[in-house]
Amino acid sequence: MYFHIDPKSSIPLYEQIVNQVKDLTIRGLLHPGEKLPSVRELSSKMVINPNTVSKAYQELERMGLLVTVQGKGTFIADKTENTVTQREKDKLYKEMRKTTIDCIYAGLSKEEIITWINDCFSGKEGKEDGS
């Protein structure tokens, strides 16, 4: 299990972990039901504060990406249950809209944009985000 942290990034550390778990899951590198390293293991490997890792895990759990089974560990959730609130959906819509508009002004065709979106769904290698 590899997470890369970028010390210089202005994104808080726990968010970097959250983003990378999301990314790895979407790209199919982490399978549903796969066990993630424990907070202890991961923080020790990465030499970061355990609280940071557990904060990231909690966040992912809240989003429904991870499930914790008491005494067994933390696993990737079977499917991404929709636990997003309407407000978050609205926020995502706005971001998507902004990005799409940027793409249009950058001269991208509708097809190209759709291909990218499809890539994301099919888990193809995309540009890694979150770092």
Binding site: R40, S43, K45, V47
Partner: peptide, 9 residues
């Protein structure tokens, strides 16, 4: 540093 983190965890 790893021992230290494991202890705290």
């Amino acid at each position: 540093l790893q021992i230290l983190i494991e202890e705290v965890a």
